[in-house]
Amino acid sequence: MKDIADQEVIDIGDMDVEAFNELAVEQGWSDGMPLYLPTEEKVARFVETVRGDNRPYAPVPPRQIVPTVQSVAANAVMAGCKPEYFPVVTAALRGVLDPEYNLHGSLATTHSCAPMVMVSGPIRHKLGINCGSNCFGQGWRANATIGRALGLMLLNIAGAKPGEMDRSTQGNPAKFTFCFGENEEENPWAPYHVQRGFAPTDSVVTVMSGEGPHNLNDHGSTTGDGLLTTFAGSMSTPGANTVYGKGPMFVIIGPEHAATLRRDGFTIETIREELFRRSRIHASRISAENQDTYISTGHKPDGDWFTIGRSAQDIHIAVAGGPGKHSAFIPSFGGTTVACVRINP
Protein backbone atom coordinates (compact mmCIF):
# COMPACT_ATOMS: atom_id res chain seq x y z
CA MET A 1 0.00 0.00 0.00
CA LYS A 2 1.38 3.43 -0.86
CA ASP A 3 1.83 6.11 1.79
CA ILE A 4 -1.69 6.79 3.06
CA ALA A 5 -1.04 9.67 5.43
CA ASP A 6 -2.29 12.35 3.04
CA GLN A 7 -5.35 10.53 1.69
CA GLU A 8 -8.76 11.56 3.03
CA VAL A 9 -10.34 8.28 1.97
CA ILE A 10 -8.34 5.06 1.90
CA ASP A 11 -9.23 1.92 -0.03
CA ILE A 12 -8.36 -1.03 2.21
CA GLY A 13 -9.72 -3.68 -0.14
CA ASP A 14 -11.35 -6.63 1.60
CA MET A 15 -9.51 -6.14 4.90
CA ASP A 16 -11.39 -7.61 7.89
CA VAL A 17 -11.60 -5.91 11.29
CA GLU A 18 -8.59 -7.76 12.67
CA ALA A 19 -6.42 -6.78 9.73
CA PHE A 20 -7.70 -3.22 10.01
CA ASN A 21 -6.63 -3.14 13.65
CA GLU A 22 -3.16 -4.27 12.64
CA LEU A 23 -3.08 -1.48 10.07
CA ALA A 24 -4.25 1.01 12.70
CA VAL A 25 -1.44 0.01 15.07
CA GLU A 26 1.07 0.22 12.23
CA GLN A 27 -0.18 3.70 11.30
CA GLY A 28 -0.23 4.93 14.91
CA TRP A 29 -4.03 5.41 14.93
CA SER A 30 -4.73 3.10 17.88
CA ASP A 31 -4.98 3.68 21.62
CA GLY A 32 -4.11 0.00 22.04
CA MET A 33 -7.64 -1.33 22.28
CA PRO A 34 -9.68 -2.72 19.36
CA LEU A 35 -11.19 -0.20 16.98
CA TYR A 36 -14.27 -0.18 14.80
CA LEU A 37 -13.82 0.26 11.05
CA PRO A 38 -14.41 3.91 10.02
CA THR A 39 -16.07 3.06 6.73
CA GLU A 40 -17.34 5.87 4.53
CA GLU A 41 -20.91 4.71 5.14
CA LYS A 42 -20.60 4.77 8.93
CA VAL A 43 -18.83 8.10 8.89
CA ALA A 44 -21.60 9.57 6.74
CA ARG A 45 -24.21 8.50 9.31
CA PHE A 46 -22.28 10.33 12.03
CA VAL A 47 -21.81 13.45 9.90
CA GLU A 48 -25.57 13.55 9.31
CA THR A 49 -26.13 14.12 13.08
CA VAL A 50 -24.29 17.47 12.98
CA ARG A 51 -25.73 18.69 9.71
CA GLY A 52 -26.24 22.45 9.95
CA ASP A 53 -23.27 22.98 12.26
CA ASN A 54 -21.00 24.57 9.69
CA ARG A 55 -18.58 26.28 12.06
CA PRO A 56 -15.07 25.35 10.97
CA TYR A 57 -12.68 23.88 13.51
CA ALA A 58 -9.67 25.88 14.54
CA PRO A 59 -6.26 24.38 13.73
CA VAL A 60 -5.66 21.65 16.29
CA PRO A 61 -2.38 21.94 18.15
CA PRO A 62 0.29 20.67 18.44
CA ARG A 63 -0.03 19.30 14.87
CA GLN A 64 -1.75 22.47 13.64
CA ILE A 65 -4.07 20.92 11.10
CA VAL A 66 -7.71 21.76 10.48
CA PRO A 67 -9.73 18.54 10.64
CA THR A 68 -12.71 17.83 8.44
CA VAL A 69 -15.98 16.76 10.00
CA GLN A 70 -15.36 13.40 8.30
CA SER A 71 -11.99 12.84 9.97
CA VAL A 72 -13.47 13.87 13.32
CA ALA A 73 -16.30 11.39 12.76
CA ALA A 74 -13.86 8.64 11.77
CA ASN A 75 -12.37 8.81 15.27
CA ALA A 76 -15.81 8.64 16.89
CA VAL A 77 -16.66 5.59 14.76
CA MET A 78 -13.37 3.90 15.67
CA ALA A 79 -14.05 4.57 19.38
CA GLY A 80 -17.34 2.66 19.19
CA CYS A 81 -19.72 5.62 19.49
CA LYS A 82 -23.28 5.47 18.26
CA PRO A 83 -24.09 8.17 15.68
CA GLU A 84 -26.29 10.05 18.15
CA TYR A 85 -23.29 10.55 20.47
CA PHE A 86 -21.46 12.54 17.80
CA PRO A 87 -22.84 16.03 18.67
CA VAL A 88 -21.45 15.50 22.19
CA VAL A 89 -18.08 14.48 20.78
CA THR A 90 -17.87 17.51 18.49
CA ALA A 91 -18.84 19.81 21.36
CA ALA A 92 -16.08 18.28 23.48
CA LEU A 93 -13.59 18.85 20.67
CA ARG A 94 -14.66 22.50 20.42
CA GLY A 95 -14.20 22.75 24.18
CA VAL A 96 -10.58 21.60 24.14
CA LEU A 97 -9.96 24.01 21.23
CA ASP A 98 -10.82 26.98 23.47
CA PRO A 99 -7.49 28.85 23.48
CA GLU A 100 -7.62 29.15 27.28
CA TYR A 101 -7.79 25.36 27.54
CA ASN A 102 -4.18 25.35 26.32
CA LEU A 103 -4.44 22.12 24.34
CA HIS A 104 -0.86 22.32 23.14
CA GLY A 105 0.53 22.59 26.67
CA SER A 106 -1.79 19.95 28.08
CA LEU A 107 -0.79 17.42 25.43
CA ALA A 108 2.95 18.05 25.30
CA THR A 109 3.40 18.24 29.07
CA THR A 110 5.09 15.64 31.27
CA HIS A 111 2.05 15.93 33.60
CA SER A 112 -0.45 13.08 33.59
CA CYS A 113 -3.46 15.17 32.55
CA ALA A 114 -6.25 13.88 30.33
CA PRO A 115 -9.44 15.61 29.19
CA MET A 116 -12.22 15.21 31.74
CA VAL A 117 -15.57 15.31 29.94
CA MET A 118 -18.71 16.06 31.95
CA VAL A 119 -22.12 16.11 30.31
CA SER A 120 -25.02 18.13 31.72
CA GLY A 121 -28.62 18.62 30.71
CA PRO A 122 -31.35 16.51 29.11
CA ILE A 123 -29.07 14.75 26.63
CA ARG A 124 -27.64 12.65 29.49
CA HIS A 125 -30.83 10.61 29.65
CA LYS A 126 -31.43 10.58 25.92
CA LEU A 127 -28.02 8.99 25.32
CA GLY A 128 -27.87 6.87 28.47
CA ILE A 129 -24.87 8.64 29.99
CA ASN A 130 -24.20 7.31 33.46
CA CYS A 131 -24.46 9.98 36.16
CA GLY A 132 -24.95 7.62 39.11
CA SER A 133 -23.11 4.67 40.66
CA ASN A 134 -19.69 4.05 39.10
CA CYS A 135 -20.09 7.07 36.82
CA PHE A 136 -16.31 7.41 36.38
CA GLY A 137 -16.00 3.69 35.69
CA GLN A 138 -16.85 1.01 33.18
CA GLY A 139 -20.10 -0.47 31.95
CA TRP A 140 -21.77 2.35 30.03
CA ARG A 141 -21.24 2.60 26.31
CA ALA A 142 -21.87 6.35 26.05
CA ASN A 143 -19.44 7.23 28.84
CA ALA A 144 -16.80 4.85 27.55
CA THR A 145 -16.92 5.76 23.89
CA ILE A 146 -17.48 9.54 24.03
CA GLY A 147 -14.39 9.93 26.20
CA ARG A 148 -12.48 7.49 24.04
CA ALA A 149 -13.45 9.35 20.85
CA LEU A 150 -11.94 12.55 22.22
CA GLY A 151 -8.80 10.68 23.21
CA LEU A 152 -8.46 9.23 19.70
CA MET A 153 -8.88 12.70 18.20
CA LEU A 154 -6.09 14.03 20.34
CA LEU A 155 -3.92 11.18 19.14
CA ASN A 156 -4.82 11.27 15.46
CA ILE A 157 -5.80 14.85 14.73
CA ALA A 158 -3.78 16.74 17.34
CA GLY A 159 -0.87 14.36 16.84
CA ALA A 160 -0.33 13.60 20.54
CA LYS A 161 1.57 10.37 20.03
CA PRO A 162 2.82 8.97 23.34
CA GLY A 163 6.56 9.38 23.66
CA GLU A 164 6.69 11.92 20.84
CA MET A 165 4.24 14.82 21.14
CA ASP A 166 2.60 13.40 24.30
CA ARG A 167 5.47 13.52 26.79
CA SER A 168 3.59 12.44 29.91
CA THR A 169 6.00 10.87 32.39
CA GLN A 170 3.56 8.19 33.52
CA GLY A 171 0.28 8.93 31.81
CA ASN A 172 -3.06 8.18 33.38
CA PRO A 173 -5.79 5.60 32.70
CA ALA A 174 -8.14 8.54 32.02
CA LYS A 175 -6.25 9.05 28.76
CA PHE A 176 -8.22 6.05 27.45
CA THR A 177 -11.55 7.62 28.41
CA PHE A 178 -12.94 9.90 31.13
CA CYS A 179 -16.54 10.93 30.56
CA PHE A 180 -19.45 11.06 32.98
CA GLY A 181 -22.76 12.83 33.50
CA GLU A 182 -23.78 15.20 36.26
CA ASN A 183 -26.29 13.77 38.72
CA GLU A 184 -28.54 16.79 38.44
CA GLU A 185 -31.52 14.98 39.94
CA GLU A 186 -29.70 14.55 43.28
CA ASN A 187 -27.92 17.92 43.19
CA PRO A 188 -29.44 20.15 45.89
CA TRP A 189 -27.92 23.22 44.24
CA ALA A 190 -27.80 24.41 40.63
CA PRO A 191 -26.34 21.99 38.07
CA TYR A 192 -22.88 22.97 36.88
CA HIS A 193 -23.98 24.21 33.47
CA VAL A 194 -26.58 26.45 35.11
CA GLN A 195 -23.86 27.81 37.42
CA ARG A 196 -22.04 28.73 34.22
CA GLY A 197 -25.00 30.64 32.80
CA PHE A 198 -26.68 28.04 30.60
CA ALA A 199 -30.38 27.25 30.79
CA PRO A 200 -31.44 24.11 32.68
CA THR A 201 -32.88 22.82 29.41
CA ASP A 202 -29.56 23.21 27.58
CA SER A 203 -27.31 20.22 27.12
CA VAL A 204 -23.70 21.15 27.72
CA VAL A 205 -20.29 19.51 27.61
CA THR A 206 -17.68 20.65 30.11
CA VAL A 207 -14.02 19.79 29.58
CA MET A 208 -10.99 20.26 31.78
CA SER A 209 -7.48 18.94 31.40
CA GLY A 210 -7.31 17.05 34.66
CA GLU A 211 -5.81 14.22 36.61
CA GLY A 212 -7.86 11.15 37.39
CA PRO A 213 -10.29 11.40 40.32
CA HIS A 214 -8.74 11.43 43.81
CA ASN A 215 -11.20 9.78 46.20
CA LEU A 216 -12.60 11.72 49.16
CA ASN A 217 -13.82 9.07 51.58
CA ASP A 218 -15.82 10.25 54.57
CA HIS A 219 -18.15 7.76 56.23
CA GLY A 220 -17.72 9.20 59.70
CA SER A 221 -18.58 12.87 59.55
CA THR A 222 -22.17 13.70 60.32
CA THR A 223 -21.96 17.39 59.50
CA GLY A 224 -21.17 19.45 56.44
CA ASP A 225 -18.38 21.10 58.38
CA GLY A 226 -16.83 17.69 59.05
CA LEU A 227 -17.07 16.73 55.40
CA LEU A 228 -15.33 19.93 54.33
CA THR A 229 -12.52 19.22 56.80
CA THR A 230 -11.96 15.86 55.11
CA PHE A 231 -12.27 17.27 51.59
CA ALA A 232 -9.88 20.14 52.25
CA GLY A 233 -7.36 17.93 54.02
CA SER A 234 -7.26 15.64 50.98
CA MET A 235 -7.07 18.53 48.52
CA SER A 236 -4.13 20.05 50.38
CA THR A 237 -1.61 18.21 48.26
CA PRO A 238 1.83 19.66 47.43
CA GLY A 239 2.15 17.35 44.41
CA ALA A 240 -0.74 18.93 42.50
CA ASN A 241 0.14 21.13 39.50
CA THR A 242 -2.39 23.69 40.66
CA VAL A 243 -0.19 24.66 43.63
CA TYR A 244 2.17 26.48 41.30
CA GLY A 245 0.30 26.32 37.99
CA LYS A 246 -2.61 28.07 39.66
CA GLY A 247 -5.43 26.65 37.64
CA PRO A 248 -8.90 25.23 38.15
CA MET A 249 -9.96 22.04 39.88
CA PHE A 250 -13.19 20.11 40.33
CA VAL A 251 -14.75 18.70 43.45
CA ILE A 252 -17.36 16.19 42.35
CA ILE A 253 -19.55 15.68 45.38
CA GLY A 254 -21.37 12.39 45.85
CA PRO A 255 -25.15 12.79 46.38
CA GLU A 256 -25.10 11.70 50.04
CA HIS A 257 -22.32 14.13 50.91
CA ALA A 258 -24.17 16.82 48.96
CA ALA A 259 -27.36 16.22 50.96
CA THR A 260 -25.47 16.61 54.24
CA LEU A 261 -23.79 19.82 53.10
CA ARG A 262 -27.09 21.27 51.89
CA ARG A 263 -28.88 20.28 55.11
CA ASP A 264 -26.26 22.20 57.07
CA GLY A 265 -26.78 25.32 55.01
CA PHE A 266 -23.79 25.23 52.71
CA THR A 267 -24.11 26.72 49.25
CA ILE A 268 -21.83 26.30 46.22
CA GLU A 269 -20.19 29.61 47.13
CA THR A 270 -19.62 28.84 50.80
CA ILE A 271 -18.26 25.39 49.94
CA ARG A 272 -15.76 26.94 47.54
CA GLU A 273 -14.68 29.55 50.05
CA GLU A 274 -14.31 27.04 52.88
CA LEU A 275 -12.36 24.59 50.73
CA PHE A 276 -10.05 27.30 49.44
CA ARG A 277 -9.34 28.55 52.95
CA ARG A 278 -8.93 25.16 54.58
CA SER A 279 -6.89 23.46 51.84
CA ARG A 280 -3.93 25.84 52.02
CA ILE A 281 -0.62 24.02 52.30
CA HIS A 282 1.75 24.98 55.08
CA ALA A 283 5.24 25.89 53.88
CA SER A 284 6.69 23.13 56.06
CA ARG A 285 5.12 20.60 53.66
CA ILE A 286 6.79 22.10 50.58
CA SER A 287 10.51 21.70 49.91
CA ALA A 288 12.72 24.77 50.07
CA GLU A 289 13.66 24.36 46.39
CA ASN A 290 10.01 24.21 45.36
CA GLN A 291 9.17 27.24 47.47
CA ASP A 292 11.93 29.15 45.68
CA THR A 293 10.59 28.03 42.29
CA TYR A 294 7.00 28.95 43.14
CA ILE A 295 7.97 32.37 44.45
CA SER A 296 10.31 33.13 41.53
CA THR A 297 7.48 32.39 39.10
CA GLY A 298 5.03 34.64 40.89
CA HIS A 299 3.24 32.20 43.19
CA LYS A 300 3.81 33.89 46.50
CA PRO A 301 2.59 32.38 49.76
CA ASP A 302 0.07 34.01 52.05
CA GLY A 303 2.25 34.15 55.15
CA ASP A 304 3.40 30.57 55.70
CA TRP A 305 0.69 29.12 53.48
CA PHE A 306 0.52 28.32 49.79
CA THR A 307 -2.96 28.20 48.28
CA ILE A 308 -4.04 25.42 45.93
CA GLY A 309 -5.45 27.84 43.36
CA ARG A 310 -5.67 31.54 42.62
CA SER A 311 -8.96 32.04 44.46
CA ALA A 312 -12.06 30.18 45.59
CA GLN A 313 -13.35 30.62 42.03
CA ASP A 314 -10.79 28.03 40.88
CA ILE A 315 -12.73 25.37 42.78
CA HIS A 316 -15.57 24.09 40.60
CA ILE A 317 -18.38 22.09 42.19
CA ALA A 318 -20.68 19.48 40.64
CA VAL A 319 -22.62 16.47 41.90
CA ALA A 320 -22.24 13.00 40.41
CA GLY A 321 -22.26 9.38 41.52
CA GLY A 322 -24.63 7.11 43.39
CA PRO A 323 -25.23 5.96 46.96
CA GLY A 324 -22.24 5.93 49.30
CA LYS A 325 -20.03 8.23 51.31
CA HIS A 326 -17.51 9.19 48.64
CA SER A 327 -16.72 12.29 46.62
CA ALA A 328 -13.81 13.12 44.32
CA PHE A 329 -11.17 15.79 43.82
CA ILE A 330 -9.89 16.34 40.28
CA PRO A 331 -6.98 18.79 40.06
CA SER A 332 -6.22 20.20 36.66
CA PHE A 333 -3.06 20.54 34.59
CA GLY A 334 -2.75 24.05 36.01
CA GLY A 335 -2.34 26.32 33.01
CA THR A 336 -5.79 25.58 31.65
CA THR A 337 -9.44 26.53 31.95
CA VAL A 338 -12.77 24.77 32.38
CA ALA A 339 -14.47 25.12 29.00
CA CYS A 340 -18.22 24.66 28.46
CA VAL A 341 -19.84 24.16 25.07
CA ARG A 342 -23.57 23.86 24.37
CA ILE A 343 -24.44 20.74 22.44
CA ASN A 344 -26.38 21.49 19.30
CA PRO A 345 -29.72 19.67 19.53
Binding site: P38, V66, S71
Partner: peptide, 13 residues
Protein backbone atom coordinates in the same frame (compact mmCIF):
# COMPACT_ATOMS: atom_id res chain seq x y z
CA UNK B 1 -13.85 -1.23 1.30
CA UNK B 2 -13.10 2.47 1.76
CA UNK B 3 -12.39 4.07 5.13
CA UNK B 4 -11.98 7.67 6.21
CA UNK B 5 -8.48 8.57 7.36
CA UNK B 6 -8.77 9.54 11.06
CA UNK B 7 -5.69 11.76 10.84
CA UNK B 8 -6.79 13.73 7.80
CA UNK B 9 -6.80 17.51 7.91
CA UNK B 10 -5.81 20.57 6.02
CA UNK B 11 -2.65 22.45 6.84
CA UNK B 12 -3.39 25.63 8.73
CA UNK B 13 -2.42 28.81 6.95
Amino acid sequence: MRIVNPTFGLAAA
